[in-house]
Design a binder for these strands. Structure first.
Length: 402
RNA sequence: GGGUAGGUGCCCGAGUGGUCAAAGGGAGCAGACUGUAAAUCUGCCGCCGGAAGGCUACAGAGGUUCAAGUCCUCUCCUGCCCA
């Protein structure tokens, strides 16, 4: 009886924030099975090392893995270095970027470091899928491809849409889900988790495992977190992401710029606030509290998670000073030293604050450039001994000779 | 393999041989208003130049023309239909 109760509790913990578990009672059965066999569950997550930055969107899934670790299970973290090196051909020619072995390794390394800000390295098994895909031969590839049909592939939403719209789909893209499924076979996954957009791939894993005479994995999907634009899922390529390796100032600033409607979702998916606490915040919002204040709390909380409490607090204070009261400039404002007199236009372009000289001129015309708080209406030469702060728009700052 | 429709700036998309750096929309940037939110209004939105102007650009390579995104040839890429 007592056992049942704690099992119930564990399961509820693991289901927090989860969108779907397939099959529905799979999680419970897996746990019971593992208990009976006296072993840990192997919980799989595959990541693509095409970009080294982990953002808040990734942390939704990582946090869930952490929950499994907390209950003593094994995380198998697969780095898709093989697939990364081939390059995902989806979309247009621009996405067809192949990564070199070195790049993939570098990305994987920084990725790991960041993941371990959330996960416990002791309880994590890291695998690279080149380990098996480099060795596989063509007849084995054929065997794998024979286990799935074109019609089933076309069931996938984005494939069928692209197919109907007459947009290209490469055969390699068809291979991706199969390869992901093969990963599950190799590492003997009990459970695989991912975002809701991964549902199809995760399910293919079940079919493939079954074909290879294995008990199919349980699939768990988690919500996708929208990025700072409030519309699209957070992703680096869309530029709407908040990276956990970014500076406290940046993280805080980006949090403040998310749409109000996302505040609660962010608390749910990107913090450790309990459902009760979140409910209370929701009430406050509905009863007319300024959403800005709740957002300040969100920013402080998230910065604290990836740095520490003091840093989180400091980020909030700085934000208020710099942007609300406009009293100071951010702590991490870059500084450059002039060795000879230079014009503002040159300085801004050379330091990559602004893209081109034409743009700086435009900004000046639009009244967006300030030096020590004074708006300038034409380009000026700065002496090499002068100490000042250049402000571009509302968000960009550059210190000179300070 | 045959037929056919296409490939335009970050994305979508219009484009008559000259008036095209290329309509329109979206994204983005700036200003106003704000809570560095949203909405709204205004301006900007290839590069260089103070400007005049120059340079680069309409898949790629050639060609016709005083003049080509627009015409011709070849190449590459993609969709659809047929085999």
């Amino acid at each position: 009886m007592e056992l049942d109760m704690s099992l119930e509790k564990d399961i509820n913990y693991l289901l927090k924030g989860v969108v779907e578990v397939i099959p529905e009672d799979g999680l419970k059965n897996k746990i019971l099975q593992a208990q009976k066999d006296g072993r840990q569950l192997r919980v799989k997550l595959g990541v693509d090392p095409s970009s080294p930055d982990i953002h808040l969107g990734h942390t939704v899934v990582l946090r869930k893995l952490k929950h499994f670790q907390d209950l003593g299970h094994k995380i198998v973290f697969i780095i898709g270095d093989f697939t990364g090196r081939i390059g995902d051909p989806s979309g247009k020619s621009s996405t067809r970027k192949k990564l070199t072995k070195e790049e993939v390794e570098k990305n994987a390394k920084t990725y790991k470091e960041q993941a371990f800000k959330i996960l416990d390295p002791e309880k994590t098994e890291i695998r690279y899928n080149s380990e098996w895909f480099e060795k596989i031969n063509f007849s084995e590839v054929l065997e794998l491809t024979s286990k799935y049909t074109v019609a089933k592939m076309l069931e996938r939403d984005d494939f069928s849409k692209r197919y109907k719209d007459g947009r290209p789909i490469s055969i390699m893209e068809f291979l991706y889900p199969l390869m992901q499924g093969y990963d599950s076979v190799v590492i003997k996954a009990d459970i695989e988790i991912g975002g809701t957009d991964q549902k199809f791939n995760l399910l293919v894993g079940r079919d493939i495992q079954r074909e290879y005479g294995m008990e199919p994995q349980v699939v768990m999907t988690l919500p996708l977190l929208e990025g700072t634009d409030g519309v699209n899922k957070m992703s680096k390529s869309l530029g709407n992401y908040i990276g956990i390796n970014e500076s406290p100032t940046q993280i805080f600033g980006k949090i403040m710029s998310i749409p109000d409607e996302l505040i609660i979702k962010y608390f749910e998916l990107a913090t450790d606030f309990t459902p009760d606490e979140i409910m209370e915040l929701k009430n406050r919002l509905e009863h007319g509290d300024n959403p800005r204040d709740i957002k300040l709390l969100l920013g402080e909380t998230i910065v604290s998670q990836y740095y520490d409490y003091e840093t989180g607090k400091r980020a909030k204070e700085e934000f208020l000073e710099v942007f609300s009261k406009k009293l100071s400039i951010p702590d991490n404002t870059p500084t450059i030293n002039l060795t000879q007199p230079r014009s503002v236009i040159d300085i801004l372009v050379e330091n990559n604050i602004v893209e081109s000289k034409g743009e700086v001129k435009r900004l000046i015309k639009q009244g967006a450039i300030y030096i020590n708080g004074e708006k300038i209406d034409k380009d000026i030469e700065l002496d090499s001994s002068v100490k000042c702060v250049i402000k571009v728009g509302k968000k960009k700052f550059l210190k000179i000779n300070d």
